[in-house]
Design a protein around this nucleic acid. Sequence first.
DNA 1: ATGCCTCAGCTCCTGAGA
Length: 262
Amino acid sequence: MIKLATWNVNSLGVRLPQVLEWLSLDPTGLGESGVDLLAIQETKTTDDKFPLKELESSHFHVAFHGQKTYNGVALISKFPLENIVKNIPGFEDEMARVISATVNGVRVIGAYFPNGQDPQSDKFQYKMRWLTALHDWIKSELIQYPKMILMGDFNITFDARDVWDPVKLEGTIHCTPEERAHLFALIELGFTDAFREFDAEEKKYSWWDYREFAFKRNRGLRIDHVLVSNALKPELTGCFIDKGPRKNERPSDHTPVVVCLK
DNA sequence: ATGCCTCAGCTCCTGAGA
């Protein structure tokens, strides 16, 4: 069994000990080993400050694409990472949001989708442009790499089940029809929302606000996703959200989503 | 209540996150 995961760590500088600890655990409880590949987002660190030694001394292969203060993505893998690509080729972007690599014949894309801030803002327009560029790029990548996993912090909910108060939050950021149209366009390229293959329950979230005891009250959103391509879907055996790390001292506001392949 | 909490940084406040 191969286990992969995505986790927005909200600063790798702060969260590295938690990441290393989590990587040593078996979040599935199904086997003896921890995840084989973890995609992280919001490392918030430049490449010269990436904790390469700490991760390599734990025998991980890494690929990273960072910047100062914001964004930043990385792949941490037990297997060698081949054909590493940073960001969306051809799409001019100062923000470090995407990192891709091939692992054991599977193309893995880890992404930190733009937040968008407010549907009326310039940042929302950037989010729309970025989503269009991602879609067009993924469409062509699928031809070269039919077995693909696109995972990360999507900053978009699929539907009301992913939202703690879908009435109150209708039309707000992460919940707009425009964002969801882009998400479904990605699905239409030939992907499955891995989590919903195994869990149809409402109120299962991957992010909770730091404020107002949101985690304790389960006021969250499911915005971290794992999309598995049609060619890879026959190998999909499980997917779940591990709430464990959200209970840590000084937690990230996001928690990992784990996917299992044959 | 353009806040509440957390993080980075041109750090004792501000911008951004979601």
